[in-house]
């Protein structure tokens, strides 16, 4: 048995970490309020309707969170062009054959748990990156359907930019249906995402879980040397 010397790598810059947690919080709030909007709880109330504004508040929180979610997402796209190499847009969109090979490799080793050389990546591995790209498309669907529904009741030009959505989908009824089922894709994504973070931390021991707090990951000295060599010799 060998002991490892670990080397500190700055992976997630502060803006990426802020994006991540704002996004996570917004999604949780949007899902909870969204679920209630879709299926309001039955409540007994003896008073008059004007005495309270419960459902109005739930919707208000949903809409505010939606704006935060939208601008946070726009910011992340921007950061994909100016951030460090782990934040770069090329992590998410396959641009070469190596990307596909790595995706296949990660699928074999980490998802199907087949035997083989462990894949150790510092930032996103290719499969994760591509999954995030799919998730970004899902964000887009949710933004278009959500703000498309919202446009009819809003004076804002931001919502107005999505007023075409009902026409594209064929009315608010189907728009709402798509919006609702996409919420469940968010929930499924979150479950798998959280699990895989713990999985990587457990089998790799590189501080995957804490990396989104401090920004650091810790890689083995020999892995660092190898990668460094590859890069300088290439």
């Amino acid at each position: 048995m060998s002991t490892h010397k670990l080397r500190r790598v700055f992976v997630w810059e502060l803006p990426v970490r802020i994006y991540h947690w704002v996004n996570a919080l917004a999604i949780v709030v949007l899902c909870v309020t969204g679920y209630f909007i879709g299926k309001p709880p039955a409540m007994m109330f003896g008073g008059e309707a004007h005495e309270r504004y419960l459902f109005g508040w739930i919707r208000f929180i949903h809409f505010v969170s939606a704006y935060i979610f939208l601008f946070n997402f726009v910011f992340r796209i921007y950061w994909g062009f100016v951030g460090n190499k782990y934040a770069d847009w090329k992590n998410f969109i396959p641009t070469n054959r190596r990307y596909f090979k790595e995706m296949w490799h990660v699928l074999k080793i980490d998802i199907l748990l087949m035997k083989g050389k462990e894949h150790l990546s510092v930032g996103h591995n290719a499969l994760a990156g591509f999954t995030y790209f799919m998730m970004f498309l899902m964000f887009l669907v949710q933004i278009i359907t959500g703000f498309g529904l919202y446009a009819a009741m809003s004076q804002s030009w931001i919502a107005g930019m999505f007023a075409w959505a009902p026409y594209l989908f064929g009315g608010d009824i189907i728009l709402r249906q798509v919006h609702h089922i996409t919420m469940w894709l968010f929930i499924l994504f979150a479950i798998i995402h959280v699990y895989l973070v713990f999985y990587h931390d457990y089998v790799e021991g590189r501080g995957e879980v804490s990396s989104m707090a401090g920004g650091w990951k810790f890689i083995e000295e020999e892995v660092f040397e190898d990668t460094h060599h590859e890069k300088t010799s290439a």
């Binding site: 679920y35 879709g38 299926k39 609702h180 089922i181 919420m183 699990y195």
Partner: peptide, 28 residues
């Protein structure tokens, strides 16, 4: 409805994850 399908999918995902977690301990 969307909620019933979503709940079923979430449960299936949970089962899949549990199986994966067990298998991880075996295989790795």
């Amino acid at each position: 409805d969307a909620d019933k399908i979503g709940t079923a999918a979430a449960i299936a995902t949970g089962v899949g994850i549990a199986a994966h977690a067990v298998m991880t301990n075996v295989r790795k």
